[in-house]
């Protein structure tokens, strides 16, 4: 819940601030966003299963984003679509995490 509220606030902030990033960075940003989303899903899951660690979350959040963007950039330079690797891995993990979050939430709801 808190994640969705944060997301909305962030989107509104971004719209109000109207900071434009250059078009050529756009594809890298998309991959970076995917990496960030993965981290957030991971954090939600960890919170629910009560093994959240701030250091791991922060390092993963920024590290994954930078690595994904870097890989996408490298792939672009080499003409190999390496960003696909990031998309598949993070995409898969987001769904995995979401599945686990779902189960945990449903279990929680049932136990009440």
């Amino acid at each position: 819940m808190i994640a969705i509220v944060g997301l909305l606030i962030g989107i509104l902030l971004g719209l109000v601030l109207k900071v434009n990033i250059p078009d050529q960075f756009s594809p890298y940003m998309s991959v970076a966003i995917l990496a960030c989303l993965d981290s957030v899903f991971g954090a939600v899951r960890a919170t629910l299963s009560k093994n959240f660690r701030a250091d791991i979350f922060i390092s993963g959040f920024f590290g994954n984003a930078v690595l994904a963007a870097g890989l996408a950039y490298l792939g672009d330079k080499m003409g190999v679509p390496i960003y696909l690797a990031a998309v598949i891995v993070f995409g898969g993990r987001i769904f995995d995490n979401f599945a686990i979050v779902r189960r945990l939430l449903i279990d929680k709801a049932k136990s009440h």
């Binding site: 606030i9 962030g10 989107i11 971004g14 601030l17 434009n20 960030c36 957030v40």
Partner: peptide, 11 residues
């Protein structure tokens, strides 16, 4: 983190 992602998405 969600706020950051939100900003990135809207950008």
């Amino acid at each position: 983190a969600s706020i950051i992602i939100g900003i990135l998405v809207s950008l």
